[in-house]
Amino acid sequence: MRVAENLNAALHELMAAERNLYLLGEDVADPYGGAFKITRGLSTRFPGRVMSTPISESAITGVAAGLALSGDAAIVEIMFGDFATLAFDQLLNFAAKSVSMYGSRVPMRMVVRCPVGGGRGYGPTHSQSLQKHFVGIPGLALYEMSPFHDNLAVLTEMLAREEPCVLFEDKVLYTRPMHAVPEPFSLAVENGVARAFLDERPDCVVVAPGGSAPMVLAAMRSLLLEEEIVCTLVVPSRLYPFDVELPDARRVFVVEESTAGGTWGAEVAHQIHQRHWGRLAGPVTLVHSADSVIPTAAHLEESVLVSERTVHRVIMETLRG
């Protein structure tokens, strides 16, 4: 099953299971079924609860917060995660704050889905990975879709947190198969954290969100075959708050597609330094895209975005000195 199908099936199952759950977004209704076809079939099956909206990210997110306040639950699709900036006030100043600013805890069951990432030539305003801008907001939890985490379980967990959550969905994952790791790696998923590993002790651990996982796995395979470097990949479903027990290794890398500066990886590195400083051979190495807008032309986009080649090179150079 492909990731998009898994996500679509998860949404169908959630909507069927809970009569108070709404799904709102631009062009999500059939027959269009969303810009990436993730909501296909939902409006036909759940009329009145799955609705195409005007092009109003702020209002849609506010409506979701209003539904959540009323005891309902809501999933919002932001067509391109880049547009979540238009919903930032509702998320930061209302939805997330409402959980605690009224003195007693107010359950807010809402998920904002944000397709993100480049590699498709959509240009500077339709290709970003804006996760870092949402890190560190009290009452807001961040998740990222991955090929290793069943979306029904992830969405169920998010709604059960009773606080607003953002689900980042790397667009390149939609057409990838679920649960696939290249030979000879094995896959295990425990407590929301997926691990791709070999039986021997790794030379390094690579932490990456779901969207970057396939690229890192490809780099891990070439590092193994060409350099005999053994890596373990760790993919948390929840990016923030970050709480992951890392396998023991002296070198740690964090890979993500975000452009440079104030990255999620910097937050992760800080936590790893605090917890594991004594056992590390050096500081955590951050691998991400360049400090740049994301260009449209394929050759230029490629020069900015983090790639399998970059991951391979940085890991090799760091380990080999």
């Binding site: 409506v63 209003g66 539904l67 009323s70 006030d89 100043n93 209302f94 600013m101 003195g103």
Partner: peptide, 29 residues
Amino acid sequence: HIRRDRYLSTGVQGESLPVAAGVALHLKR
């Protein structure tokens, strides 16, 4: 920023209207 029963206030201009629309959507149904 006050919430009591079905009363709620917020401090950012205009922010409450979409939320009120969401509550109205709930009430309608």
